[in-house]
Computed example of a mutant assay.
Amino acid sequence: MSAIAWIAVGSLAAWGWLLLGQGFFWRTDQRLPRREAPASWPDVAVVVPARDEAEVLPLSLPSLLAQDYPGRAEIVLVDDGSTDGTGELARALSARHGGLPLRVVSPGEPEPGWTGKLWALRHGIALARERAPEYLLLTDADIAHSPDSLRELVSAARTGGLDLVSQMARLRVASGWERLVVPAFVYFFSQLYPFRWVNRPAARTAAAAGGCVLLRTETAERARVPESIRQAVIDDVSLARAVQRSGGRIWLGLADRVDSVRPYPRLADLWRMVSRSAYAQLLHSPFLLAGTVVGLAVIYLAPPVALCVGVFGHDTVAGWAGGLAWAVMTATYLPMLRYYRQPLLLAPVLPFTALLYLLMTVDSAVQHYRGRGAAWKGRTYARPEAAPDR
Results as ranks from 00 to 15, higher is better:
Gly161His: 08
Ser228Ile: 06
Tyr333His: 10
Arg27Thr: 15
Trp376Val: 13
Leu215His: 10
Glu74Asn: 13
His123Ala: 13
Val294Cys: 03
Ser149Gln: 13
Arg272Asn: 08
Ser94Asn: 06
Gly124Leu: 13
Val181Asp: 05
His97Ser: 09
Leu252His: 07
Arg34Met: 09
Pro194Phe: 04
Asp43Met: 04
Leu239Arg: 03
Thr361Lys: 01
Phe24Ile: 06
Phe188Glu: 05
Leu344Gln: 09
Glu385Thr: 14
Thr332Gly: 07
Trp114Pro: 07
Pro62Met: 08
Arg34His: 13
Ser94Glu: 07
Pro348Gly: 08
Asp259Glu: 14
Ala184His: 14
Ser285Lys: 01
Glu111Leu: 15
Leu136Glu: 04
Gly319Gln: 09
Gly291Tyr: 00
Val181Gln: 12
Asp84Gly: 09
Gly81Asp: 11
Leu100Lys: 10
Phe25Ala: 05
Gln191Lys: 11
Val311His: 04
Val294Ile: 15
Ser149Gly: 02
Leu267Cys: 03
Gly81Tyr: 02
Ala66Lys: 02
Gly323Arg: 12
Ala354His: 14
Leu64Asp: 03
Pro33Ala: 03
Glu88Leu: 09
Asp236Glu: 15
Asp80Glu: 05
Arg31Asn: 00
Gly322Arg: 02
Val349Cys: 11
Pro42Met: 02
Ala268Arg: 15
Glu55Ile: 05
Ala208Pro: 11
Gly113Lys: 03
Leu162Arg: 12
Gln167Met: 14
Ala92Met: 12
Ala207Trp: 04
Glu218Lys: 14
Glu227Met: 07
Ile299Thr: 11
Asp236Cys: 01
Thr332Tyr: 06
Arg372Tyr: 11
Val76Ala: 06
Leu164Val: 10
Tyr279Lys: 07
Phe188Cys: 01
Ile250Thr: 14
Leu153Cys: 05
Ser175Asp: 02
Gln191Ala: 15
Val309Phe: 13
Pro49Gly: 06
Gln22Leu: 12
Val258Cys: 12
Leu359Met: 06
Arg179Phe: 07
Val182His: 09
Arg170His: 05
Phe24Tyr: 12
